[in-house]
């Protein structure tokens, strides 16, 4: 089966088994290794990407369901050479990242969440993070950084060098 979709703004085609999980195509064919296959069961959130702007688990997304869709990965959100997403800037500024395994997924889930809920409070942020497990940070500093980011409003995109 042939599937045409947009990946980080570029039209791309996939010709293979339509039940292939998106995570495998991203990592093995497109060499986009930001999203991580950790549990492959929808529980950990390390594989989170955005499909049509909504955070979804790439490990459970069959390629056949992506025809005509827009997929954004952490590489599409900010690759380090271009301005970072303001939430990435907030995470870097607050030095919240430890091993970093969960962070591509965390950023993809929370960047969609803050876009849709600019008034969110701590409880709402925690609820939004339920599907993104972090074994290192204890979560509180991540939540602090999201709260600070929302307090600052829509901060302009910043260069990594500015942080």
């Amino acid at each position: 089966m042939s599937v045409t979709f947009r990946l980080n703004g570029q039209t791309t085609r996939f010709h293979d088994d339509p039940m292939t999980p998106l995570i495998d195509v991203l990592r093995r064919e497109k060499f986009l290794t930001g999203a991580k296959p950790v549990c492959r069961e929808g529980f950990c959130g390390a594989c989170t990407v955005q499909v049509d702007g909504e955070a979804q688990m790439a490990c459970l997304k069959p390629m056949g369901l992506l025809d005509g869709r827009e997929v954004t990965t952490i590489e599409g959100l900010g690759n380090g050479r271009e301005p970072l997403h303001p939430l990435q800037v907030a995470f870097a500024a607050a030095d919240v990242v430890q091993c970093g395994m969960c962070f591509p997924g965390m950023v993809m889930a929370l960047s969609a969440f803050v876009r849709d809920h600019p008034e969110a409070d701590r409880t709402a942020i925690k609820t939004a993070m339920v599907g993104n497990i972090c074994r290192c940070t204890g979560y509180e500093r991540i939540i602090d950084a999201v709260v600070d980011h929302l307090k600052d409003g829509a901060a302009p995109k910043a260069e990594l060098a500015d942080v």
Partner: peptide, 9 residues
């Protein structure tokens, strides 16, 4: 049920 990303699909 589940978590937000799962409930979305």
């Amino acid at each position: 049920a589940a978590n937000p990303a799962i409930r979305r699909v």
